[in-house]
Amino acid sequence: MEAGRVVTDAPQGRVRRQRSLRELLGSIVLGFELLVVFLGALVLFGLHSLPAWLALGGGAALIVLMIIAIGLLRNTAGVVLGWIVQLVVVAAGILVPAFFIVGAIFTAMWAYCMIAAARIDRNNRAAASAADNGTENP
């Protein structure tokens, strides 16, 4: 130990993969929506809109699907799963009309994040490519 500094010979950790903005924003939206789906499953159970096994099991299945989508967001499959989740949440409005509003809000956030983030990621890749080639991006 040197004057307030710790010196270690431990190897550095592995370098983390740079995540795209689409991946980051998509995981945030799906993460918050996951909480809403959990609470929504409890509402369906409490209102006896569905049998207990279907309300809680369906909610759990949708949560698992959301977790898989978050893990796959680097691929197109994760984005497609995210859109499927949005459709299911909106369709849950048939059982409890408030889900139409919740589903619409999350679908709008999901659509905006996917469209805007894809555009920003595309511009960032173009700028990085131009910097690698030694040209300036207008």
Results as ranks from 00 to 15, higher is better:
M109A: 15
A92P: 06
G26K: 05
I28W: 12
T107N: 08
V36Y: 04
A10C: 09
N124Q: 12
D132K: 10
W110H: 11
V37P: 05
A111H: 10
L95H: 13
N133R: 15
H48L: 09
V43N: 01
I70F: 00
R119H: 03
I101N: 09
L39K: 02
A61Y: 00
V96F: 12
L21F: 11
R5V: 14
A128E: 15
A92Y: 07
A3G: 06
I67K: 00
A77L: 10
S20Y: 09
L24F: 05
R19F: 11
G4R: 02
I70R: 06
E2C: 04
L56Q: 00
I67F: 00
A130C: 08
A10D: 13
V64I: 07
G57M: 04
G4D: 04
D132Y: 14
G134M: 08
A127Q: 04
S49A: 15
G4Y: 02
I101Y: 07
G58W: 03
L30I: 08
M1P: 11
P138Y: 08
I105T: 13
V89K: 00
L81H: 02
V64D: 01
W53R: 02
F32E: 10
A60H: 01
A91V: 05
A117H: 04
N124E: 14
F32V: 14
I84L: 07
F32P: 11
I84Y: 02
E23M: 05
F32G: 15
L73Q: 00
S20V: 09
L65E: 01
P11W: 07
T135R: 14
N133W: 09
A118E: 08
A55M: 03
P51D: 12
G4S: 06
R17Q: 01
L65T: 06
L47T: 11
L87Y: 05
R74F: 04
G134S: 11
L72I: 00
L73C: 03
A61D: 01
L87M: 13
V29R: 14
I105D: 09
A111G: 10
V7A: 05
A127Y: 04
G78P: 03
G4N: 07
T76P: 00
N124W: 06
M114Q: 09
D9A: 12
